[in-house]
């Protein structure tokens, strides 16, 4: 069996490509820079140089592929130009959909995000049936939603799909913008003081990377199509997350909380400062808001249809911390 994996140099795509390859699946990995150290290497992985934004460069890589895993995305929330998000996430996805339809791909598996559902309503966990209740809070959410709309349009033209809406992914792996929990763990292990906004009661959902990879492979193997699944793990507050990490890393860190509005004001001023000086973007108010909003979720549908099982946060964090220490 042959599959195409986009985003193979990314956090999820890299591990997905390696996992598929280890299961004797031939993986075509589409990479913009084939010399990057992040390119996965395995005898079953064939690397193709190409860019989703140029449709012709996809055609060679997709030849003979039964399934497509589209994990590539522009995720850098600090980027202020919607063009980067739109080109990679919308135009790129459409090129890949077009090529998949032409190739007669059996299933188009799209790695999406829980954030397309927006925040949860109060403390009620998000399910696949929750309509979006608030407008798009950043360009990443918007362009991922637009990509999903494209996928639904192509399914009407005959391309079967599965969309996986993954929550906050954590665990060992390549350091990218999508791997915030690992950065937090390192920070807490190394620093003495951590400053956080005082909205630490906010609940989010955390999913272990290995569960995400397994879910991708399951939807390929199982007879499911034209469905979407929320792939998540435990729902916990930042307070509990901080305490867990602190305990597991034996950290003596002091966590100091600041008034949220003041933090936001600081971020706004910092942004004005950076823009005036022409410095590259950092944390923006919308990113801050996106981080501190309730996003608990339920993966009951995946549990039922895919027999999906989530690793507990305790176990996942433990393994992550072990791996991080091996590296450093």
């Amino acid at each position: 069996m042959k599959v195409l994996v986009t985003g193979a140099t990314g956090y999820i795509g890299h591990q997905l490509a390696m996992s598929l390859a280890s299961k004797d699946v031939v993986v075509h990995a589409l990479c913009r820079d084939i010399h990057s150290f992040k390119v996965p290497t395995h005898k079953n992985i064939m690397v193709f140089e190409g860019d989703l934004c140029e449709k012709s460069s996809i055609e060679e890589a997709i030849k003979g592929c039964d399934y497509v895993f589209h994990t590539a995305a522009f995720t850098n929330l600090t980027c202020k130009n919607i063009h980067n998000f739109y080109q990679a996430n919308v135009v790129g996805t459409e090129h890949l959909l077009e090529a998949s339809l032409e190739q007669g791909v059996k299933k188009f598996v799209f790695t999406s995000t829980l954030s397309v559902y927006g925040p949860s309503y109060k403390d009620i966990p998000i399910t696949e049936k929750q309509p979006r209740l608030a407008s798009y809070s950043n360009d990443y959410e918007l362009t991922k939603s637009m990509a999903e709309e494209k996928i639904l349009a192509y399914s009407k033209r005959g391309l079967p799909y599965v969309i996986l809406n993954v929550s906050k992914v954590y665990g060992p792996g390549i350091k990218t913008f999508s791997n915030g929990v690992s950065r937090l763990i390192e920070l807490m292990a190394k620093k003495d003081i951590l400053f956080v906004p005082d909205r630490t009661e906010v609940m989010c959902n955390y999913v272990y990377i290995k569960d995400v990879v397994k879910a991708h492979i399951k939807v390929m193997r199982l007879d499911v199509s034209n469905e979407r699944y929320i792939i998540g793990g435990d729902n916990i507050s930042y307070n509990v997350l901080f305490q867990k990490i602190k305990r597991l890393t034996n950290s003596k860190i002091r966590i100091i909380k600041f008034n949220y509005s003041l933090v936001k004001l600081g971020v706004v001023l910092g942004n004005v400062f950076r823009t005036t000086l022409g410095w590259p973007g950092g944390l923006t108010p919308s990113v801050l808001d996106a981080l501190f909003v309730n996003r608990s979720s339920m993966s009951d549908k995946a549990r039922k249809d895919l027999k999906y099982k989530a690793t507990s946060l305790e176990k996942g964090l433990n393994q992550t911390i072990k791996t991080l220490k091996l590296v450093s």
């Binding site: 919607i82 739109y86 209740l133 608030a134 407008s135 798009y136 360009d139 918007l142 362009t143 939603s145 637009m146 709309e149």
Partner: peptide
Amino acid sequence: TTTRLCYQNRLMGWITRQSVLNPE
């Protein structure tokens, strides 16, 4: 409102962008 309008609104000039409201 719709994703298409959200995207269009993001391409507008600064003043127009500031004038755009979220439906809620």
